[in-house]
Simulated assay, not measured.
Amino acid sequence: MVRMDLNCDMGEGFGVYRSGNDEQLMRYITSANIACGYHGGDPATMRSTVRMALSHGVAIGAHPGLPDLAGFGRRRMEITPMEAYEMTVYQLGALMAFARAEGGGLSHVKPHGALYHMAAKDAALAEAIAEAVYKVDGSLLLFGLAGSELIRAGERIGLRAAREAFADRTYEEDGTLTPRTVEGAVLESSEAAAAQAVLLATEGKARTRQGSYVAVEADTICVHGDSPGALAHVIALRQALTEAKITIQAPGTL
């Protein structure tokens, strides 16, 4: 039996600004990566998103990012490993408190945006983030790009690591995601996103932007909650994976 987690980045609005259709998306996913206040999110949004996840039986994950609200955490910043460690601990603590206050807990951690991609290639940053997660709660799953330094760092320190793939992004031939600055980096068609998800889940590979195929072993598949077509994508993915006889389960039960 092939099993797969379906995750989505959520709670990324703040103040009067809203991002994504979290309430509707929650019905179709199995894990939610909730912004912790740096790239998005605020106390009210964090609490309401945690409550939504609990009401739908969705696993709660922390989604720490760089301190960059204006750039949505997608702009690279020069930070030291110690800074990466400290900002990860800080953000984990914030979301963990909200989860506990609402009668739940965290299941996983997934860095956001530029921090995620920096840790995919920079071993020192990856080790700092993995250490932060391990010291806060060594039972948490660490989500990272399949084949990345972050996955290797998590496994070395003793964390359970979930290899992540993306249904709504294109890949390069080295297994990295196509930068968002490149045209076509985001798949806008729900049919294309669903087809990629099934290919990832059943054959462990993805079609690259260049037209070849690259091996991508995944435990969890992501759809970005802030994408305009996110809800249509998730509905199409869930249907396609079910038709392909893929069992969709939360990360803690994989």
Rank of each mutant, 00 (worst) to 15 (best):
H108I: 02
E183L: 12
G40Y: 02
A128H: 10
G104Q: 10
A244N: 06
Q24I: 04
M118N: 09
V2H: 10
A70E: 11
M52T: 14
P251E: 00
E183C: 06
F143H: 11
M46I: 03
R47V: 06
V223L: 03
G93A: 11
S31R: 05
V182N: 04
L95E: 07
A123I: 15
R163N: 11
R152N: 10
A123T: 14
G158E: 11
V182C: 06
A94C: 09
S139L: 01
L6Q: 12
Q24D: 11
I34V: 14
G138F: 05
Y38K: 13
P43I: 06
P111L: 01
R238Y: 00
S212T: 14
V198E: 03
I246Y: 05
G105H: 12
G37A: 08
A114I: 04
V50Q: 08
A84N: 11
Q24G: 00
V223T: 03
G37Q: 04
Q24C: 00
R100L: 09
G211Y: 05
L106S: 04
V216I: 15
A167C: 10
K135G: 10
G40Q: 07
A123R: 15
G154N: 07
S55P: 08
Q91L: 04
I235V: 14
E78Q: 15
P81Y: 06
G104W: 10
M46G: 10
R100G: 14
A218L: 06
H56W: 10
G105T: 13
E172A: 13
A218S: 14
F14A: 05
L177C: 07
N7Y: 01
R18K: 14
E78I: 13
T170N: 13
